[in-house]
Amino acid sequence: MSDWELPPDASIPGLACFRELLVPRILAFESFRQIIEQGPGANAALRDMAALSHKIAGVAAALGYPGTGDHAAAVETTIRHGLAAGENTAEIWRTTMPLLESLLDDMERILDD
C-alpha cells in the first residue's frame, strides 16, 4: 500500500476475503523466499511466487490498493520475464527481492489498518 492510499470502504466486495488471505499469503511468500535462497526447487518456488503475485495484482487495485497491485505486478513480471529469458535463479532473485519487500511492506500495512 503506497503512503497516499487511504483504507478503502470495508463494504467493497472481496475486501474481507482479501484481508483474510493476507496472513497466509505473507507466510507463503516467506516460504517461497526460503526455498529460493536455499537453492533446490528455487525455479518452482519462483513460479509459485509469480502465480501468487499474479492473483494479488489482479484484484488489489479494485479493492482500493492500486500501489499494492502495481508492486505485485512488478514481482510477477520480473520473475516471468527472467525465467523466459533464461536468466539464472540468483539473478532473477536479486532483482525480485526488493520488489517483494515492497509488496510485503504493503501487505503488512494493510493488515495494520
Partner: peptide, 14 residues
C-alpha cells in the same frame, strides 16, 4: 477463477 477474492468481485460487479 482460482482466486476467491476475484470471484467475489466479479459476482458483485455482474
Amino acid at each position: 477463477d482460482d482466486d476467491p477474492v476475484f470471484l467475489e468481485q466479479i459476482l458483485a460487479a455482474l
